[in-house]
Computed example of a mutant assay.
Amino acid sequence: MLIWLAEWLTQFESAFNVFSYLTMRAILSTLTALSIAILIGPAMIRWLQIMQIGQTVRNDGPESHLAKSGTPTMGGVLILAAVLTSSLLWADLSNRYVLVTLFVIASLGILGFVDDYRKVVRKDPNGLIARWKYFWQSVIAIAVAIFLYTHANIEAETSLIVPFFKDVLPQLGIFYIVVVYFTIVGTSNAVNLTDGLDGLAIVPTILVAGAFAIFAYVTGNVNFSEYLNIPFIPLTSELVIVCTAIVGAGLGFLWFNTYPAQVFMGDVGSLALGGTLGILAVLVRQEIVLIIMGGIFVVETLSVILQVGSYKLRGKRIFRMAPIHHHYELKGWPEPKVIVRFWIISLILVLVGLATLKLR
């Protein structure tokens, strides 16, 4: 939005031309989202406390979590407000990739909000019925997939980039819709499952979003994409603004979410952020790299699948509790140790993912 104002003002003062540079707007996007989260955070937390919108803790979980009962939740609204405001201010809103990404984060945020509302306000422990949650996730993902497929202008937009192999670029065709669907829905649920400890989900999200900012920049730059032997997709460069907004909002939220947390993001945050990472991976054509960089999310999800499957088939549990972060807590690891070690692993995986840009 402000980019249009800056373009108009440039005719009167050339200094406004600085806002046309993507790097400058990326920095401003980060700082804007960070400032919104930091400044609004305390007031929002107080309001949540007054309204008694607090977390409900399972009795069968780690005993240390019982003290978390009543901690304000639905803090993801703060993240989404910061991301959306910053993106609307600094991104080029004529770019359809930006609009699709904002649609995903907003629509999944609304879905997560309804789920949280039923849990903490209506006191329904199950929240939104699982099949309805999955149904609306599917509707959103399929709608986005069909839109992107029907509006693809170049082959690169529907090709699959295979890491480490510069000449392997299979054209997905109609199967592209399937890939988009599972990427958005899968990542949305994976981040949701990971959000079980203070700051555990938000830091990997920040790291992956920051990495996607780099992927978006080089993919949308003809010189860098040619040098790195990746397809050139001009629309992706503007996604840098959304990615940096997520980084800024995430850091601002971490200020209050770090151990011991003053607020939790809730499904309104985790479902939306997960789906956004998924659509970003799709748009920069790095779905496979997302699996690498989001390895923590993958492991958390697999631990739940294996736990449920093992119990149903053999009547035995593989882990003391799933998702796997609870397993380590029950083994005696202090919560901060689990969190920081998962952060370190996430950082390593993101670096491996970034290495695929050059190792081809």
Rank of each mutant, 00 (worst) to 15 (best):
G61I: 12
I45D: 15
P42S: 10
A91Y: 14
S35T: 04
Q55F: 12
T30W: 15
S86Y: 04
L88R: 00
A67D: 08
L34A: 11
L80C: 03
Q49R: 08
S20P: 07
P62C: 06
I36R: 00
T71Q: 14
Y21E: 03
T56R: 13
A43D: 07
I53W: 13
R25A: 13
L48C: 07
Q55S: 08
T73R: 12
L34S: 04
R58D: 00
G76I: 03
P62D: 12
T23N: 09
T56W: 13
V57R: 06
V57P: 12
V57Q: 08
E63T: 01
P72T: 09
S69Q: 15
P62Y: 09
A15V: 15
S87Y: 05
S69R: 10
T85M: 07
T23R: 07
A26I: 15
F16N: 13
R25D: 14
W90E: 12
T85S: 15
I53S: 03
L80W: 05
W47R: 10
N17E: 12
V77Q: 07
M24K: 00
G75T: 01
I79F: 04
G54D: 14
I50W: 02
V18P: 14
R58I: 09
A67W: 10
S64R: 07
L66S: 05
G76E: 06
Y21D: 11
